[in-house]
Design a binder for these strands. Structure first.
Length: 312
DNA sequence: AAATTCAACAACCGCGGGGGG
DNA sequence: TCCCCCCGCGGTTGTTGAATT
């Protein structure tokens, strides 16, 4: 696929910081002509900038709905949660933070949160090194913290816990009764485990996730959780992101040395077997019914105006 | 007061998806 | 189906001001 040469290579174009006059020209032009057609915009507006630069300037700085000021504590917590779900999908994260841009969040992460997490990691590492020469096999670093800190390039690699967003439907489900946690099974789990084809409660079925295609894998005795290979599109992701992340406990370091899984993501007050795990590019759940209320928009506090106001 | 280091953030760059001809 | 182009994204770099030595 051929690609047009980068417009920034063109000669005679201004680069670097934007002047107030350039800002005004761009703002006036977009106000009267609207966004889009970035490639032609500079010529028409009379700017000696490339289209990409104009777009970036508008989206990250000049847009009227840009929220100025420091990132609040609530926003920071939300960013952390979303980053653990999505990885470095800055635009998706920014989409949940009205008035904030992906660039702003990315910068904030790199200069603040990432360093905090790295510092916390180093702190934990020193503590564990100093105290557990004899307990090396028992204690493992928090996979979430490890993944979130350090090299951002590695954030989505390896045993990622981020949610894949490219998929359109659920293609595979695996349920294996956990021998070490038999008390956590419920009737639904038993049924799932004994039938070749799984039916999932209607409370969970939300388009476009095609739960009718859930299949059991026959040789699944290596796993110890219900696993499903999600493929999800933006609609599902939108629903997913509308979940009440404030209830997620998955990413807190609870010092559970018995497992290096991603731990419990959602815990229903009515069920102690509710599990939604995110691990290795897959979502894991021992009780899919528990996801119903999550996917429902009832807990859509992220979009609730009151909550948004609280973030300000 | 000058030099150096650090932090914050704006801007650049290259890649890839997707639409349209 | 292929090709071209537009656009958006994420990583990286550059710039600037503040803090420190």
């Amino acid at each position: 696929m051929g690609r047009s040469p980068c417009c920034s290579k063109a000669e005679g174009l201004n680069r670097g910081a934007w002047t107030a006059m350039e800002d005004k020209i761009l703002t006036d032009y977009i106000k009267s002509h609207g966004e889009g057609k970035w490639r032609n915009l500079p010529k028409r507006a009379g700017l000696k900038r490339c289209g990409k630069s104009c777009r970036l300037r508008w989206l990250n700085y000049l847009r009227p709905d840009i929220k100025r000021g420091n990132i609040t504590r609530d926003e920071e917590e939300l960013i952390i949660r979303l980053h653990k779900l999505l990885g470095n999908r800055w635009s998706l994260i920014a989409g949940r933070l009205p008035g904030r841009t992906d660039n702003e969040i990315k910068n904030y992460w790199n200069t603040n949160i990432g360093k905090k997490i790295q510092a916390q990691l180093n702190h934990n590492s020193k503590r564990s090194n100093a105290s557990n020469h004899n307990h090396q096999a028992q204690e493992k670093p928090n996979p979430i913290m490890e993944r979130s800190a350090g090299d951002p390039h590695q954030a989505n690699k390896g045993s990622s816990c981020v949610v894949r967003t490219k998929a359109t439907k659920c293609t595979k489900a695996v349920n294996v009764i956990a021998s070490e946690r038999p008390q956590q099974l419920n009737p639904r789990d038993q049924i799932i485990d004994s039938k070749p084809v799984v039916e999932v409660g209607s409370s969970l079925v939300h388009d476009p996730v095609d739960f009718s295609k859930f299949m059991l894998e026959e040789n699944n005795n290596q796993s110890n959780n219900f696993m499903m290979d999600f493929e999800m599109d933006e609609n599902f992701l939108s629903d997913f992101l509308n979940m009440d992340f404030s209830q997620l406990s998955c990413f807190e370091d609870r010092g559970d040395s018995s497992t290096n899984r991603c731990d419990k993501a959602h815990s229903s007050p009515n069920s102690d077997q509710t599990l939604l795990l995110v691990s290795g590019d897959t979502l894991h759940g021992s009780n899919f019914q528990s996801m119903g209320p999550l996917i429902d928009s009832e807990l859509d506090w992220l979009c609730d105006k009151e909550n948004l106001n609280n973030l300000v």
